[in-house]
Amino acid sequence: MPTDRPTDTPTDTPTETPAETPTDPDPRDWLETELADTLDEDYEIELEDAVLSMKIREIYRAAHGPTIPRPEYFKSLLRLQAELIRLQDWVVYHRKKVVVIFEGRDSAGKGGVIKRISQRLNPRVVRTVALPAPSDREKTQWYFQRYVPHLPAGGEIVLFDRSWYNRAGVERVMGFAGEDEVEQFFEDVPEFERMLRRSGIHLVKYWFSVTDEEQQMRFLMRIHDPLKQWKLSPMDLQSRVRWEQYTKAKEEMLARTNIPESPWYIVPGNDKKRARLNCIDHLLSLFPYEDVPHEEVELPDRVFNPDYERAVLPPELYVPSKY
């Protein structure tokens, strides 16, 4: 996608203020600078979708057609992220416990929406859990045991980038779990999730859905983009071979684990931008959050000691200024 900045976004480095000019900052200048930094951060993230070979880019655009215009997308995203901050404050104030599960096929967009949800939130409150393959010891444990330590305490939100539903998906399709283990999982998971709800955990489950053609296109993008090749694993490539097996496994999983206490919500993911906005908007709609009391914050005066003299540090301690 194009990476040109809007013409009204300040990009020049500010020059030093002459000693004789007033030093009190104009609040509007601070706001413009903050907005510029925010857009720079968003553009940096969006570059992950832009570094494609020209041929793949042409094919991708022809297959998708127009998406949300970038200014409209950023405006909506910033508004939703502001609401996520309100949700975070409500969770902390009322000591709520929230778990959000993100499942879906490889390259369906789970990581992208998780990144936008957590982008402006406090990492001490909102954390992402993406567990590796189980160790030999973990394979002998109760299946849900390795997920339990990552569940939230009061005032925390945990985002699971894949979850215990691995057993019904990749483990089943790739033969890492036998049919008897899968059947035991289907019998156990509804009661496990009811236990979570009874303990006060708000559990939300999202399945990101993409078409066969869209997944193929995204895999091609990863193959041809050096910045994304790390995302491809032998397991991902096998998911292309076993597309129909994954489809059957997904359909049974949704049918047998879609319970009233923790229903599934399906996010159409072919359009990444719309998927992110729709998912965040829906997540916010599930909680009766509202503004909570905040202590007034005042910047204290700096204490000046006339006898203090700042030490001169040796130049080799400083990071070289190459940029």
Rank of each mutant, 00 (worst) to 15 (best):
S239G: 08
R127K: 11
W243T: 03
L277I: 07
T257V: 00
R127D: 10
N166I: 14
L131H: 09
W30I: 14
S239E: 05
T7H: 12
E171P: 07
Y60S: 14
D4T: 15
L237Y: 05
P300C: 04
P10D: 00
P14I: 09
L151Y: 08
E32Q: 11
D180R: 15
V129R: 06
R124A: 08
R79W: 12
I157N: 03
V210C: 04
K96F: 01
Q184S: 12
L227N: 02
F102A: 04
P320Q: 11
S209Y: 11
P314N: 14
L196H: 03
E193H: 02
R146I: 01
E72H: 02
P27M: 10
V204Y: 12
R105I: 05
A255D: 03
R310H: 13
A177H: 09
V126P: 04
W142A: 07
F208Y: 09
V303I: 08
Y206T: 05
L277W: 01
Y265P: 01
I157S: 03
Y318T: 08
F185W: 05
T3Y: 07
A108V: 00
G269F: 04
P6D: 10
K272A: 03
T128I: 15
D212H: 15
E251H: 09
W243G: 03
V210T: 05
K139H: 08
D4Y: 14
R70F: 09
V241T: 14
D136F: 14
W164H: 01
Q238Y: 07
Q229K: 14
M217R: 15
P132T: 13
M217H: 07
Y289E: 05
Q238W: 04
G109V: 06
R124W: 13
E32G: 02
F304W: 08
Y143W: 05
H94T: 06
T7N: 13
E213H: 03
E16S: 13
P152M: 09
K322R: 15
L87F: 07
E295H: 15
K322N: 14
V148P: 09
P25Q: 07
L78D: 11
T128M: 09
A108L: 02
D106Q: 05
D24C: 10
A275H: 04
K55C: 08
Y143E: 01
S163I: 03
K231P: 08
N122A: 01
T257F: 00
H202W: 09
M253P: 11
I114E: 00
S76Q: 14
R95C: 11
P300E: 07
L220T: 09
I201N: 02
T9S: 11
I201K: 02
I259W: 00
S262T: 15
P190D: 00
D8T: 13
R146D: 00
A255I: 03
K97P: 00
T67Q: 10
K96S: 01
L220C: 06
E295W: 15
P134R: 04
I114D: 00
V319R: 14
P134V: 04
I45M: 12
A63M: 10
V125A: 04
Q88P: 01
A50S: 14
V129K: 06
T11N: 09
D212R: 15
K97N: 01
P10G: 05
W264H: 06
W164T: 04
E48V: 12
S233F: 03
A168R: 09
